[in-house]
Simulated scan of single mutants.
Amino acid sequence: MSDLTPDAEKSHQIKISLRTRLLTARRSLPVAVRSAADAQLHDRTTALVRRTGARSIAAYVPVGSEPGGPDLPDRLLAALPPGGRLLLPVLLPDNDLTWAEAAPADPGGPVAPVVSTDPSGPRTARSLLVAGPRGLREPAGPRLGVEAVCSVDLLLVPALAVGGDGTRLGRGGGSYDRVLARLPEPGPLVVALLHDGEDVDFVPAEPHDRRVHAVITPTGGFARRPYSPSGS
């Protein structure tokens, strides 16, 4: 028997249905369409980094059809000013996330090749990441702890959809709900990267859900949410 109230149970079922539909749509995107969208997201996130003057970024490492593609970490590293740093997540056994600093790959180090999604044609590049659990890619450096994300200027998070009030729909594992719940106020600017069509009017909210400050989509670009920090 469910411990959820009738309203919460209804929201939960709506989220399951929405999540299934969005995942199916993502998987059906042609490679060329996804590659072009990733390139647009790279341009828009780079512009955001430079416009905000962010010197420290925490981001995710896209897998499969997630927005941004496998080159996203490298593009973010290139967008940072001298002395800037990029933190990337490392999955813990309880599904929480600790963080490690990304650095340009050492050509002689133990790194895995990654195929670029550049629409001009596939190429093989050296990755700054190593293989992690569940098919993830992770930075190999020292683990900085779950609180490391609290001190960054900009946090880019994955999402399947974001509603008009900033409510974020994830895959259901809860990793980023924990990350967002521990951020201070005021904290970093939190932006979700989405495919076109995933910036929606409404996402059902449950007590554990957290909102984001803005979204970036390939064609729509940067769009604030109602309580976006001033000046962002």
Score class of each variant (00 low, 15 high):
residue 3 D to N: 15
residue 3 D to F: 13
residue 6 P to Y: 02
residue 8 A to P: 00
residue 9 E to S: 12
residue 10 K to M: 11
residue 11 S to F: 14
residue 12 H to A: 15
residue 13 Q to L: 15
residue 14 I to M: 12
residue 23 L to N: 13
residue 25 A to K: 12
residue 26 R to I: 06
residue 30 P to M: 07
residue 33 V to Y: 12
residue 36 A to I: 01
residue 40 Q to K: 14
residue 41 L to C: 05
residue 47 A to L: 01
residue 48 L to N: 10
residue 48 L to M: 13
residue 50 R to W: 03
residue 53 G to E: 04
residue 56 S to D: 01
residue 57 I to K: 00
residue 58 A to E: 02
residue 60 Y to V: 02
residue 63 V to K: 05
residue 65 S to I: 06
residue 69 G to Q: 03
residue 69 G to T: 01
residue 70 P to G: 07
residue 76 L to S: 11
residue 80 L to R: 04
residue 83 G to I: 01
residue 84 G to D: 05
residue 85 R to F: 10
residue 87 L to E: 05
residue 88 L to A: 04
residue 88 L to M: 07
residue 90 V to F: 14
residue 90 V to Y: 14
residue 92 L to I: 00
residue 95 N to G: 00
residue 101 E to C: 07
residue 103 A to H: 12
residue 105 A to M: 09
residue 106 D to P: 03
residue 106 D to S: 05
residue 108 G to R: 10
residue 110 P to I: 01
residue 114 V to S: 11
residue 115 V to I: 10
residue 120 S to L: 05
residue 121 G to H: 02
residue 121 G to M: 04
residue 125 A to R: 14
residue 126 R to F: 01
residue 133 P to T: 00
residue 135 G to V: 04
residue 136 L to W: 05
residue 140 A to Y: 03
residue 140 A to F: 05
residue 147 E to W: 02
residue 150 C to Q: 13
residue 151 S to R: 14
residue 151 S to T: 14
residue 153 D to A: 12
residue 157 V to W: 13
residue 161 A to T: 03
residue 165 D to T: 03
residue 165 D to S: 12
residue 167 T to R: 09
residue 170 G to I: 00
residue 175 S to I: 01
residue 175 S to T: 00
residue 179 V to L: 14
residue 179 V to P: 15
residue 181 A to C: 08
residue 181 A to I: 03
residue 182 R to W: 10
residue 184 P to E: 11
residue 185 E to H: 11
residue 186 P to A: 06
residue 187 G to I: 07
residue 191 V to H: 08
residue 197 G to M: 10
residue 197 G to Q: 08
residue 198 E to R: 01
residue 210 R to A: 04
residue 214 A to K: 03
residue 219 T to Q: 10
residue 223 A to G: 02
residue 224 R to V: 08
residue 225 R to N: 02
residue 226 P to H: 13
residue 227 Y to I: 08
residue 227 Y to D: 15
residue 229 P to Q: 11
residue 230 S to G: 11
residue 230 S to M: 11
residue 231 G to E: 09
residue 232 S to D: 04
